[in-house]
Write a protein that binds this DNA or RNA. Sequence first.
DNA 1: ACCTGTGTTACGCGG
DNA 2: CCGCGTAGCACAGGT
Lengths: 223, 223
Amino acid sequence: MRFVFALCEVSYSGRGDTTLPLYERAILVKGDGTVSVHSDKGIKPLNYMNGGARGNMVEHVDNKGLKTWTFENSKETLVITFHRIYSDTQCDVPNNDPGLKHDGTESQIQEFLSKNIKILKPEYKFIKREYRTDNGPVDILAYDEAKEKHVLIEVKRVATTSALHQIKKYVDGTTEFDEVDALLVAIDVRPKTREKAAKMGYPWMQLSKDDVSGFFVSEKSDD
Amino acid sequence: MRFVFALCEVSYSGRGDTTLPLYERAILVKGDGTVSVHSDKGIKPLNYMNGGARGNMVEHVDNKGLKTWTFENSKETLVITFHRIYSDTQCDVPNNDPGLKHDGTESQIQEFLSKNIKILKPEYKFIKREYRTDNGPVDILAYDEAKEKHVLIEVKRVATTSALHQIKKYVDGTTEFDEVDALLVAIDVRPKTREKAAKMGYPWMQLSKDDVSGFFVSEKSDD
DNA sequence: ACCTGTGTTACGCGG
DNA sequence: CCGCGTAGCACAGGT
C-alpha cells in the first residue's frame, strides 16, 4: 500500500477518455496493483484502474524532468504526471483482509424467514426458497392455510417500485396453481412503493431486526 | 486530507450493519468530512461515510487506552478502533479540484455537430439543438439542402437499438414538416443496431475523435 | 471468458 | 429536498 499526495495531472483512456488538470490530489496504490486518484471530497476516486495489471506501474522521467507513472493493461491506460510530490508513504500489508461481515442482508432475511415464516402470518407454511415461476425464481413460496392458497413472497432489503414489477412478473408466470397471492417483505418499503403497491393490490410488510431473536414485523400495509 | 495506516477494527451501522475484524487497513479522511476504510485490494472502500457530517469526527480514548474515531450523522455511525498506528499523514488542500473532464460524451458530440454539421453531409444546414417533436425533443434538427427536407439527428455515445425506437418516435411525432429524414450519429453503433437500422431504413454514421480538429466520420451505413 | 444481479451503490440532474 | 437514471459503475457468483 502506497499513499502519495502530489500536484499532478492525470489522463485516462480506456472505457472512457478523461483528463484531470494540474491540481493537488492523493494517489493510492494497493498491493494488488489497483491505483486510485482521489480529490479532497467524495467517496469515489476521480480516476482508478484495477489491479489486473499487477506490477505494471512504470515510472519514467520525461525530458522536462517530470516524473510520470503509467499503468497499463490490454484495454486501458492511466498516466499520472507529477509536478510536485508533497508526501509519499509506503506500508506493508499481508494481503489477507478477513473482509466485511454484513448483517441484515436480503439473503439473511430470506434465511430467517425460511425458518420463521409465521411471523408474517401464523397461517403461513414455508414450502421452499427460490421457487421457479415461468418468469424467473421468486424468493419464497409459502402456503396460506387460512386462505387455502399459495403465496409468492419477494424479499428485499430496500423495496422500490421495481420489486412490484418483479412480483407482477412472478404472479403472471405462475402456472402451477390456479390462484396465487403475493407479498412484499423488506426492511424498508419506500413511500412511493407503498402507494404503488396499494394501487396494484399487493400487500407488504416491513421487518426490523431484533438483536435477540431475529427479525420482527414493524409495519404493514392496510388489509 | 489525512491518511492513516493502522491495525484497527471498524463497525458501521446505518444503511446496513457491518463489522470489520482486527486487521491492517488504510483510512482516508477528506476535507469534506468523507471517511473511507481501505483494504490492500480493490477500488471500493470496505467502509465509508460521506461528509455530510463535516467536522463530526470525534476522537476518544477508551478505558483500555485504545483510541477510537467516531463519525456520526443523523442516520449513520462509523466507529474505528485503533490498536496500532503505523503511519499518519496530513496534507492541506484547497478544496477546489477542477474535476474530471470527460471526452467524447454525447453532449460534446452535440456541441461539436452544432458547429460542424457539414462533416455529416456538406448540404446539411444546422437549425437547432433539442428540437421539440410531439413525442419529446430530438438532439438536432437540420435541413438537407440537397433533398430539400428537414432531418432529425439523434446523437449517442453508444447507439443500441433503443436509439432506433427513439428515432421512430421522433419521426412519428414530427408534424411541422410534411416529410422528414432521420439520422443516427454515434461513436459506436453496435452491430445489432446496424442490422436493425437497415431493416427500419434509418441511415447511421459513426464518429471518431481527431485530436486537432474534433470529430470526423469514421464509418457510415450503406446508402 | 462472459453474463447477471446486487450495492451502505455514489453521484449528478431534474422536479 | 427527493426521486430517477447513469456509471470508465465495482464486485460477487454462476455458467
